[in-house]
């Protein structure tokens, strides 16, 4: 039993390191080749876990091999347009200037129900408002609305707005992120004042605090359990 536990930990670490080195965080962003690798890795790596009589190498070598192949394929995809279209395919224009391209729908086996579902996920209920819709190689649908249907922007209303500042997390679950504090040009004394002004006694009392360079603060106290 101890051996099974140790083998499980080794395989688990091998998969985590491999997936991390592959560099993708969300399943939805994987290209087809990467998705295959992700699925295969988990299945192959589990073989030695299911059978203690199978050497660990029978799980580790396939994982390492798949990882290396994925790195090389990704390099090919990055450097060659032809190779990229061969491996990943090309995006398909599903709606072109307001008209549904039925040939592309059939080619991608994309049904009207699926189209409506993907549009609803983007809060688009009326298909007539969509000028362009592209089915990407990873299966997601990108949409561009007609200008008159798109949300109004300050630029369209000729309004001048303040430049957006990037908010950074300063306190994460009671821990101060010093490098973020420095990034907005502040120090711990300033942070201490802000935290006390919000009613907390110490940094450990804070669940999350964010701020930007204009001192716009988001603050949440830690709940007492």
């Amino acid at each position: 039993m101890a051996v099974t536990m140790i083998r499980t930990i080794i395989i688990f670490l091998a998969i985590v390191i491999t997936m991390r080195l592959m560099g993708k965080r969300q399943l939805g962003e994987l290209e087809p080749a990467e998705l295959v690798v992700a699925v295969l890795i988990s299945d192959l790596a589990s073989q030695p876990l299911q059978d203690p009589g199978t050497p660990l190498l029978y799980g580790l070598i396939p994982v390492i091999t798949l990882f290396c192949c994925e790195i090389l394929i990704s390099a090919g995809i990055m450097n060659s347009l032809k190779f990229r279209s061969l491996v990943c395919g090309r995006p398909s224009m599903i709606i072109d200037n307001g008209k549904i391209v039925q040939r592309e729908m059939r080619k991608n086996r994309f049904t009207l129900d699926e189209l409506a579902e993907e549009l609803r996920k983007k809060d688009i209920l009326d298909i007539a408002t969509v000028q362009y819709a592209v089915l990407e190689t990873d299966g997601t649908l990108s949409t561009i609305l007609y200008p008159e249907e798109a949300p109004v922007t300050p630029k369209a209303l000729k309004l001048e707005v303040e430049k957006a500042r990037y908010p950074v997390i300063l306190i994460n679950d009671g821990k101060v992120l010093v490098h973020n504090l420095k990034a907005i040009g502040r120090d711990e004394n300033w942070l201490d004042k802000q935290v006390r002004a919000k009613g907390a006694k110490t940094f450990e009392d804070v669940y999350i605090m964010t701020a930007d360079a204009s001192d716009n603060i988001f603050f949440s106290m830690r709940e007492v359990s």
């Binding site: 990882f67 290396c68 192949c69 090389l72 390099a75």
Partner: peptide
């Protein structure tokens, strides 16, 4: 570098 290392590892 990653690609070269991957090829070497293979």
């Amino acid at each position: 570098v990653k690609e070269v290392l991957a090829a070497l590892l293979l």
